[in-house]
């Protein structure tokens, strides 16, 4: 990932689904420098303890970034954010309750920005009714379809887990490819929302590599609903292996992120497996059906990064060594 690009997370979903709660949760829980763009201050209330100063057209946030509106268009908002001093690492854009998140996500292709994910919130109690409403049925369905990560919020308001399972199945059917995650009070683990903090952080916590360059794996529970695993890679990985991994992620996977040395298929047979001259450093990412593999600029004056891929999945959906096996022993 280019150090100067700002990751963009779009937060969409119909009125009352919990977008504002999610934005506050992210600001509170993430240690990233996050700027926020909202449609309208009338629609959002950033929690007061997260604000250090309020201006007529922007809020200065405790994290050193700002929250501003789309009042003068996206370009003006971006300019405000860039001139606010500390450049953010991430930009959260809260779409209006009727907006098409796909259209908002188009801003993520502005030079200097990188679209990370479209998060769409659904109100567990209301979404079925809304998706059949005389006026907004098509709007709500269009929003759900746009999701990379579909957060089924207020899940605790449902009667039982069967009802929750039914709802999530129904939503998964409406939004093929989206990672469907459950939450109450929008408390989705931050790594699921924004991705593992960074691949190198994940690599720092690895266990010592096993002899012979085999991938090591680590296993722990993120929170009640999720668990993560990290595959540490001591050798380049053939491109087709990465492509196959991204093309065919199991349903339980909410997020995947990592830095790999990718080599063309031909050199994969090289038994040494460490022919770094042939290798390209790549950032691989997946959230829901949105996957990407982008060249990663390495600084030759710095020690090489840790090569590792992390994955967050629904608890119990994957064996703990699944990722390591996929990356190391392709079928």
């Amino acid at each position: 990932m280019n150090a100067h690009t700002i990751a963009v997370t779009v937060v969409g979903g119909y009125l009352g689904a919990g977008k504002t709660t999610l934005v506050n949760h992210v600001l509170r829980s993430s240690d990233e420098r996050i700027a926020v763009i909202v449609n309208d201050f009338g629609e959002i209330s950033i929690d007061e303890d997260l604000i250090v100063a309020a201006d007529s057209d922007k809020l200065t946030l405790a994290n050193g970034c700002i929250c501003c509106t789309l009042a003068d268009g996206f370009a003006a908002a971006l300019m405000q954010i860039r001139s606010a001093g500390t450049l953010p690492e991430r930009l959260l854009i809260e779409a209006s309750g009727v907006a098409d998140p796909t259209q908002i996500a188009a801003y993520g292709h502005t030079p200097g920005l990188r679209l990370d994910a479209v998060v769409v919130m659904a109100d567990a109690e209301q979404v079925r009714r809304q998706a059949n409403d005389r006026w907004v049925a098509d709007t709500v369905r269009m929003q759900l379809t746009a999701a990379d990560l579909l957060v089924v919020n207020k899940i605790d308001l449902l009667d039982d887990s069967r009802e929750a399972d039914d709802l999530c199945d129904w939503l998964a059917g409406l939004s093929p490819g989206a990672a469907v995650v459950r939450a109450s009070r929008a408390a989705v683990p931050i790594d699921v929302l924004l991705g593992p903090r960074s691949a190198s952080d994940a690599a720092d916590t690895r266990e010592p590599p096993t002899p012979g360059g085999a991938a090591a794996s680590r296993w722990h529970v993120v929170e009640d609903l999720f668990e993560s695993q990290t595959a540490v890679l001591d050798a380049p990985v053939p491109m087709p292996v990465i492509e196959a991994l991204l093309a065919d992620l199991p349903d339980g996977v909410a997020r995947l992120k990592g830095l790999v040395q990718a080599v063309p298929a031909a050199s994969a047979d090289d038994s040494s497996g460490t022919d770094a001259a042939d290798a390209t450093a790549c950032l691989v990412e997946a959230v829901g059906r949105r996957t990407s593999m982008t060249p990663h600029a390495t600084d030759p004056t710095q020690p090489p990064p840790r090569w590792a891929v992390s994955l967050i999945s629904h608890k119990g959906s994957l064996p703990p060594t699944w990722l390591a096996r996929r990356l190391h022993e392709p079928k």
Partner: peptide, 26 residues
């Protein structure tokens, strides 16, 4: 260009049309 706001011609290259604010701001 990766933006969906950048329209492309039959040859697959941007044809100069920019769609919606996200495209026009480019």
């Amino acid at each position: 260009a990766t933006s969906p706001g950048v329209a492309r011609g039959g040859d697959g290259l941007p044809n100069g049309e920019l769609h919606e604010p996200a495209g026009m701001m480019l």
